[in-house]
């Protein structure tokens, strides 16, 4: 039976446990002591709320004087309940801020901000179908090229955005200079 024990990778019980505990301990302790970083979509949701504060919509963009400022998410929803938590209780100029999820291009005056999820590969098809008064926000790097107004981009692990002011103003939207100054780039 000598050949049976050839090349046997085995450790006596106690040193194996020691190794496992060290490897494990290293992982566990930092977990509970490190502060949690916010997630990408938490920050994007905060930006979407901020856009409602730093942009003026024309009166025709709304169905009625009492209708809310509606943020619509088109496509795969990576926000979860984050966006709802952020807009809860918020109001701009007497209008509530609300969030909804949609599956195709919205009818006119139902959305004031249209967030096009990165799962939607053909934004170029949807954008021309929208009426004026809708701020379009996207995540793909082709978004501005396809006619979008604001595109989120991750740079150095920070959430930044590019603005195409020309398209936004053509849609009747007024972007505050505060917003423009924080953008990574602005096309005028």
């Amino acid at each position: 039976m000598e050949q049976v024990t050839r090349n046997h990778f085995r450790l006596p019980r106690s040193s194996a446990i020691l190794l496992a505990l060290i490897a494990g301990g290293a992982g566990l302790i930092p977990t509970f002591l490190q502060a949690e970083e916010p997630l990408e979509y938490e920050v994007k949701a905060a930006f979407l709320l901020n856009f409602t504060k730093f942009i003026e919509w024309p009166a025709e963009a709304f169905a009625s004087p009492g209708s809310p400022v509606s943020i619509c998410i088109l496509g795969e929803d990576s926000f979860g309940s984050t966006l709802d938590q952020i807009v809860s209780g918020e109001a701009i100029n007497g209008r509530k801020v609300t969030a909804q999820r949609i599956k195709r291009a919205p009818p006119p005056r139902t959305c004031q901000i249209l967030f096009v999820s990165k799962s939607e590969r053909e934004a170029a098809r949807i954008l021309p179908e929208l009426g004026p008064g809708v701020l379009t926000v996207g995540e793909r790097d082709t978004f501005i090229r396809e006619g979008g107004m604001i595109a989120f981009v991750i740079e150095n692990r920070r959430v930044r955005f590019d603005i195409n002011q020309i398209v936004a103003e053509k849609a009747g939207l007024k972007l505050s200079s505060k917003l423009l100054s924080v953008a990574r780039s602005v096309e005028k």
Binding site: E37, P38, L39, V43, A45, L49, L179
Partner: peptide, 18 residues
């Protein structure tokens, strides 16, 4: 998210995310 609401645009642009 609640805490993030109160940040300014500049502050939001500086946060590192996962």
């Amino acid at each position: 998210p609640a805490a993030l609401k109160n940040l300014t645009l500049e502050e939001l642009s500086q946060i590192e995310v996962t």
